[in-house]
């Protein structure tokens, strides 16, 4: 190879809405990476693209549904999960994935998140956690660390954040993992595992948000945050869930991996006919 060959299409364009590229995500933002892992998993899922459906809520990550060339629904803020529940129950043949952000899923959509986990509805949830509300410019989210700076916390966030894996396991979820946008191979593999696994699955994907969170919390750009991930991420092995909180400003290990994988009865509406 002498030089890089300039082309005008990417192998994944077949599953993307290439006519809408480049997408809106900021330079260094991790959502594109998480989206790519999902797109790759779609191709390798062995499930015809026709049966895949993606539902997303509002927020930066909410825009992902608009870039994947399958049946995609960009719903209201926080309501992606119940919408996806209705879709799945009306047509169980569909593989329904909810792809949304930490604010959308755990703040306004929190009630639906824990109930879907409790019910073990057969929908796959991918939650891109960038520790703030990115779309609206960097406000506090339920995952923003205590003391972190945000446009709605100029003197430091006065609230304790959720530890999402801990929350989801406590809500009864059968499958909970956490990866980052640096762990692209593991993330794609885990999404494939979720496709193959009946019931509710939840993957938290830590992602850089240089504009909304990074720059006001001394993480210069996406590159630097991924370098943090590289230094600090540790596959959790027997670490108690309550210690899985994250504060990127502290040099503490970030625990990733699959935290729980238990077979629970998958939610099915009562039927006397089958």
């Amino acid at each position: 190879m002498t030089q890089a060959i300039v082309v005008d299409s990417h192998p994944l364009d077949q599953i993307l809405r290439a006519d809408r590229m480049p997408h809106i995500f900021c330079p260094g933002c991790g959502i594109g990476i998480a989206m790519r892992c999902y797109a790759q998993a779609l191709l390798e899922s062995g499930i015809p693209q026709q049966r895949h459906v993606v539902v997303s809520g509002i927020g930066c990550t909410g825009r992902v549904a608009g870039y994947i060339a399958i049946d995609s629904y960009h719903t209201t803020h926080g309501r992606a999960i119940p919408f996806a529940t209705g879709l799945k129950l009306a047509n169980p043949n569909l593989m329904v994935t909810v792809f949304s952000g930490d604010g959308d899923l755990a703040a306004i959509g929190g009630n639906h998140l824990i109930h879907a986990a409790r019910r073990n509805v057969d929908i796959k949830v991918i939650c891109v956690n960038n520790f703030n509300y990115g779309m609206t410019g960097g406000q506090c989210a339920p995952t923003t660390p205590l003391g972190a700076i945000a446009t709605t916390a100029p003197y430091g966030n006065p609230e304790q954040p959720f530890n999402l894996p801990y929350l989801l396991v406590a809500a009864g979820a059968g499958y909970v993992s956490r990866w980052t946008t640096l762990h692209v191979r593991q993330l794609k593999q885990d999404i494939l595992r979720c496709f193959a696994r009946p019931g509710f699955t939840f993957i938290e994907v830590l992602s850089a948000c240089p504009v909304g969170f990074g720059k006001s919390n001394s993480i210069a750009d996406g590159l630097e945050e991924l370098q943090l991930y590289r230094e600090r991420c540790v596959i959790a092995d027997g670490v108690p869930l309550e210690e899985m909180g994250i504060d990127l400003r502290e040099n503490r290990p970030i625990y990733i991996g699959n935290f729980i994988d238990r077979d629970l009865p998958v939610y099915h509406p009562v039927s006397l006919t089958t």
């Binding site: 190879m1 890089a4 060959i5 082309v7 299409s9 590229m21 330079p27 750009d221 996406g222 590159l223």
Partner: peptide, 21 residues
Amino acid sequence: PQGQVYLIPERCKGCGLCIEF
């Protein structure tokens, strides 16, 4: 293996991840 790099320059947003990693 020997790889060949392909590029779509207009999509790049200069985040530097490919270079770094």
